[in-house]
Amino acid sequence: MTAVAAVETVPLFAPADVGIRAVSKAALYVVIASGLSLIFGLMGVLNFAHGSLTMIGAYLGGAVMVATVSAGTGGVARFVLFFLAAAAVFGLLTGVGAAVEVALIRPIYDREPLFQILLTFGLVLVLDEAARIVVELAGLQPQTEWQDAIGTAPAFLGARYDILGVDTRWGLYAFEALVGLTVVVAILLFLGETRYGLYIRAGSEDAEMAQALGIDIRRAFTVVFGVGAGLAGLAGVLLMWDPRFGASVPLSVETLLVAFIVVIVGGLGSFKGTVVAGVLVGVVDALMSWLFINVVDFPGLPELVLFTVLVTVLVVRPKGLLGVAEVGGH
């Protein structure tokens, strides 16, 4: 995660700064975890390749922005291009995800979960290595954030503003919070108001019963795996502008860990749980980053605290905060 990168110029006691960082991180974490939550909840598939798709989404979004934005491109045009890039990446990775489900995941549904874990872990190795090769061929450093892509953000997002006595990137963090909120509302509406959303909520509880009611659960699996992959890519596009993250190959593992923590803490099969856990983890991360960087000098401790939260939840409440099934018992 991003504890070290979060040092910047945070004052010794800065509740406003911690607050806005917490809000932006909460939004980002929910978006990062949402696709994994939908896939895990309905299908019981632990998609280790989720972070790789986020990383690829960040590079694809960055590629669109770098190719289309020039020094003379105005702020509004950059926002428009960003949303077009986000839509394109979402659509592309949704299609790729659906194809992966049909070609690779579907043939092993009847096998032990270990096969799915090994398969998706294999995908991580393939995708991350392929990304590293392509990024190097493009003349970029795979290990460091793609600064050219970060530089395509409108000046309003790139600049720091002094508000409430805190000098930070208020525009960027507010933008991330707004996009995150929009994504959450869209997913909640999809789950709550559409027939497919109903299938997903029911299938997350009891896929066999859903089948016996006439629902083609295999098709729902394909749709959800596709949408989950698309959401992973969308999260990548959102992270591409943020200097705390940025497009880089290590973003794959970084976001995968966040997604796992959020989904498990929130509870298997519950998107609302994912939202609650995303907010919780975002707030804890921002608070711990401030505490262990500005008050006590232990930059690695915020991550340790998050993993402690994860382990505590697994031991004390294996269902997670709002889960409908125990992790491992699906």
Partner: peptide
Amino acid sequence: RPTHEVARMGIGWVPENRRMFSHL
């Protein structure tokens, strides 16, 4: 044939232990 196709032919299932979608 797939279960959902058989069910759609007009067969309803009232399973043991009811198996409600308890969160719906």
